[in-house]
Amino acid sequence: MIIAEYRVTGLSPQVIGELIAEAGPLWHERHQARLTARPRRRAVGAGAKHKFVFVDRRLATLVSLRHGTTHDVLACWFGVDRSTITRAIGDGAAPLLAQRGCTVAPDVRLRTLAEVIEYLGAGGQTGITDGTEIRVRRPVSGRKDRDKFVPGKTKQNAAKTMVLTDAEGHVLFCGPVRPGSCPDITQARQLGLAQLLADGPFMEILADAGHQGMGARTGGRVMTPPHRKFKKNAPAWYEERHELQRKAHSSRRIHVEHGIARLKNWRALARHHGRSEHMSDIVQAVAGLLSHQQTATRPSGSRV
């Protein structure tokens, strides 16, 4: 029932089947390695057996990511104890899913920003980048650098990640999470975007005004909205031309907002209630799942 209903997990039965077939052996290998690495008091194979099978463990993880469902509700749903759900979701599922990368074709996945730039440049495609904020719990009183999670724009406790999509809004990359006060251009520089573009083939990356200045460092590869040359008493003709240029750039960039909206449909990214050190894995895991589903439902022969 859970596998067959798209609204429950956000994934089709085909994608879930491929996910389980791929991740199952990797999870069992890591689980056995973890058991053999620690001192044992029982022989290998002895002791209690998992009653919560791997398929149900992955389904519980998907439902938690998609809807932000509490562990108590999932425990009632699957007929197990709450601690069993907590262990199942926290047993390394998010890092395992995050390592899969973003799927752009049935046999092509992009795991790093360098691979994304190479893929876009080889196909002569346009990329679109933007930063998005994820609301988080307020850090405890007295914590060092508590205000780093408060961005200057929204004034809410948040973390930020950089999203890169193609011209159609398909997610290709999500960067690691940074505190909300980190500017978009700083995060792009930390990820090495300017250097990758400067050393790579000529291509076009559309960005917002928060990335102004990167165009000069990348040989014009990063396109941002035009600067205002008149701050006061601008001629009417200039105001009209500037507004047309700004709207033309915004209409080309709108697809990245659609990609971010599809990411935020996974409630784990709308507001994060867990530990901050797990956020990067969760963001990249959701990006990988979303891109896999988009690739599976994309008409054959369409441009990737």
Rank of each mutant, 00 (worst) to 15 (best):
P106D: 11
D147M: 09
P106L: 04
R262F: 01
Q32I: 11
S64Y: 02
T132H: 09
I2T: 08
D72G: 13
L289F: 04
S251Y: 07
M223P: 00
D72R: 12
P25D: 01
F230M: 07
D145M: 02
Q125M: 13
I85G: 00
G152V: 04
D199S: 14
D91N: 09
A88Q: 04
L65P: 04
G131N: 03
A261V: 02
P95K: 08
L26N: 05
R40L: 06
A37E: 12
Q212Y: 15
G79W: 00
L172C: 02
A234Q: 04
H71D: 03
V104C: 08
K232Y: 09
F173L: 12
E240Q: 09
V116N: 02
R246P: 01
A46L: 10
T36F: 05
D81W: 00
P39Y: 07
Q195G: 04
T61Q: 04
L35D: 05
R34S: 12
N157A: 15
Y119S: 10
G131C: 04
L172H: 03
A122R: 14
G24R: 13
L110M: 04
I260C: 02
R271C: 08
L19M: 12
G288N: 01
V256D: 00
L193I: 13
P226D: 07
R38L: 15
G259A: 07
G101Q: 07
R246H: 04
K148N: 10
G24T: 13
T84N: 00
V53I: 09
T154K: 13
R298K: 13
E118Y: 09
P226N: 10
A94D: 10
R178C: 07
K232L: 10
F52S: 01
D281V: 01
T61G: 07
K232H: 12
V55F: 09
A194M: 05
L206R: 01
S291C: 05
A88W: 00
P106W: 12
Q212W: 12
Q125S: 10
A60M: 00
T126I: 07
L120F: 09
K51P: 05
G301D: 02
G200A: 03
V283P: 00
T224S: 06
L110Q: 11
G79F: 00
C76S: 13
K229Q: 12
L196I: 03
F54P: 03
R221Q: 15
H258I: 11
V140H: 15
S64R: 07
A270V: 15
I89W: 01
F78T: 08
W266R: 05
I205K: 05
A37M: 14
R40C: 11
A48S: 14
K51C: 01
C102Y: 03
P176N: 07
L11D: 14
R267W: 03
K229S: 09
R252S: 06
K231I: 08
L263N: 09
Q190A: 13
R111F: 02
